[in-house]
Write a protein that binds this DNA or RNA. Structure first.
Lengths: 169, 169
DNA sequence: GTCATGTGCTTCGGATTCGAAGCAAGTGCG
DNA sequence: CGCACTTGCTTCGAATCCGAAGCACATGAC
């Protein structure tokens, strides 16, 4: 290869660290969830998201969006959770085509049973290496990143508007 | 903000932001890789990891470890890459049971073709919302996290449930 | 040398994943 | 109302993923 403009080394560091850290963490957590509650990571995310809602319910689409999952994938998991009695799925009164997923008591129970261990893993793996201010900074920075990404054209929407070189407008 | 009653609120913020941001980023990048080079994310990671090595080679196990993937999963992907001529797989001269994966010229070419767009996505999604010092901090903090996780007992060593059965014998 | 154990990779089976296509309900407009 | 278009979810097929089991080489104890 000739020379490519040396991509910013620190940026790459940050990027790779982000990917690696999240992958490692995810794997560890996944294991814990499997052992403790027989849950996959997505399933846990779904339950946790529902638990976060005041009503304990969400529409399928919003749920899929929240956990960053495909719709068909969520259908699969929601059914699995329903079969196990951890959530219910009922058509919305407002929109007959919407399905509202709701956490059951059993679901809350499972969540409660799994959560402490979950936190323990986080403490051991993620927070053990960090000071309080590290955590604060991390939350602040990544929070900003997340918000930015959520705002930005979600999926396709490549630079469509772009005209050819020169006049931006 | 009231104090954190049960779990530390800031910690949870950081954790969720980490997971969400990495998920969103990964999806976006995945799309770009698919479009530009017909590569899955893992495949890209493998090529990139190999490209990072002075010799352009790595053992299967080290590779799997590096990209945080199962061994069987890597076997699958390595074969796919080999079929497409992007890597070669040869038994190691040292250890007859080791397989050394090596980047081919075609592999380097693909990597080169895909990389600029990859960086563009990162710029747009990840770095656009961050200042230089944010990036530095992020790299530093997450680097520390990653190192900590890499050191920590990878698999087992999870807090066994129940009591410790004292001496096994 | 030979056995027991450890290490490296693959195969196998089953579970999960996604996108595309399909179906049904909602909306805007004449 | 009828029609075109949108939106919400599911089904379908094919690809991918992982853990357990298996195979082959390597190493250490004796």
């Amino acid at each position: 290869m000739p020379d490519a403009p040396p991509p910013d080394a620190v940026q790459l560091d940050a990027y790779f660290a982000l990917i690696e850290a999240s992958s490692l963490l995810r794997h560890a957590v996944e294991q814990q969830l499997q052992d403790t509650g027989d849950l996959s990571y997505v399933q846990f995310q779904v339950l946790a998201t529902l638990g976060d809602s005041p009503t304990g319910s969400r529409r399928m689409t919003d749920l899929a969006d929240g956990v960053v999952y495909s719709r068909s994938g969520l259908t699969y998991q929601a059914k699995a959770l329903e079969t196990r009695g951890l959530v219910t799925r009922t058509p919305s009164p407002d929109d007959e085509r919407s399905i509202v997923v709701t956490l059951t008591d059993a679901g809350r129970g499972t969540l409660a049973r799994v959560f402490p261990g979950h936190l323990a893993v986080l403490d051991e793996l993620l927070f053990a290496a960090l000071s309080r201010s590290d955590v604060e900074r991390l939350a602040e920075i990544l929070g900003r990143v997340r918000d930015h990404m959520r705002q930005t054209p979600p999926r396709s929407a490549a630079p469509r508007r772009g005209k050819t070189p020169g006049a931006t407008a």
